[in-house]
Structure formats: structure tokens, C-alpha cells
């Protein structure tokens, strides 16, 4: 079985568990574009309306992680690790008031792995 496309660091996993305790089930959607973009957004599950072309990359701490289909086409050769750093501001992402921000770190898939 190939490595998962998306995983979480322990710090991110702990934050997800804390946010779930406050807000209930969650979802991630990877943003593109400027300002707080190119970073994952975390919402109450169902808050963000998924489209037919959004791709489910996997789950972290039981939380589904999605990305737009066009964006996925340009990211699919990489694997993502969701991490958390001290930060401020994140669109409408749930963690911002905690003074932290989810970010993604990336690795290139090995050539023997399915892209």
C-alpha cells in the first residue's frame, strides 16, 4: 500500500483534536492564490460546499482533506504534511483565534510510488 497523500504532524494532530472538541467534526480545503492562500483552510464539516471536481486527498485525525481538481493536477506529484506554526490570520479558518496557523509542508513522491 502506498504512503498516504496527506499526513499531519503531532502538533497539527493535537490542534485538530482540540478544534474538534470545540467545533465538532471538521474538514480541510487547500487554498490557492494570494494573501492567506497556498495554505489549508479548516472549517466545520459541511461548512464549505464541495464541488464535483474537488478531490479528497485523505484524512488526518479523521478529518477529510480536499483540494480543487485543477490544483490537484498540479500538486499530485507531491505528498503533504499538515503542520502548525504560530501565526495570525487565515481567511475564515477555525484555528486563527488560537494564535496558530495550519501550513503544509511537502515532499516529492518517489518515482516508484504511484503519482
Amino acid at each position: 500500500m502506498s504512503a498516504p497523500r496527506v499526513t499531519a504532524t503531532e502538533a497539527a494532530a493535537e490542534l485538530i483534536r482540540r478544534l474538534v472538541a470545540c467545533h465538532g467534526p471538521l474538514m480541510f480545503h487547500q487554498s490557492g492564490g494570494c494573501c492567506d492562500g497556498s495554505a489549508p483552510m479548516c472549517y466545520p464539516r459541511g461548512e464549505f460546499r464541495l464541488g464535483a471536481r474537488d478531490v479528497l486527498l485523505g484524512e488526518i485525525e479523521g478529518t477529510p482533506f480536499y483540494m480543487g481538481g485543477d490544483q490537484f493536477a498540479r500538486w499530485q506529484h507531491t505528498r503533504l504534511t499538515v503542520d502548525v506554526v504560530p501565526g495570525r490570520g487565515a481567511g475564515f479558518s477555525l484555528e486563527a483565534p488560537e494564535g496558530v496557523r495550519f501550513i503544509v509542508r511537502s515532499d516529492v513522491c518517489r518515482s516508484d510510488e504511484p503519482a
Binding site: S31, G33, C34, C35, D36, G37, G68, G91, F92
Partner: peptide
């Protein structure tokens, strides 16, 4: 709004 795509969709 000025920002990024996911929040734009929202």
C-alpha cells in the same frame, strides 16, 4: 473580498 481561492469560494 481580496484574498485566496478557498475563502473566495466560501
Amino acid at each position: 473580498f481580496t484574498g485566496e481561492t478557498t475563502t473566495g469560494r466560501l
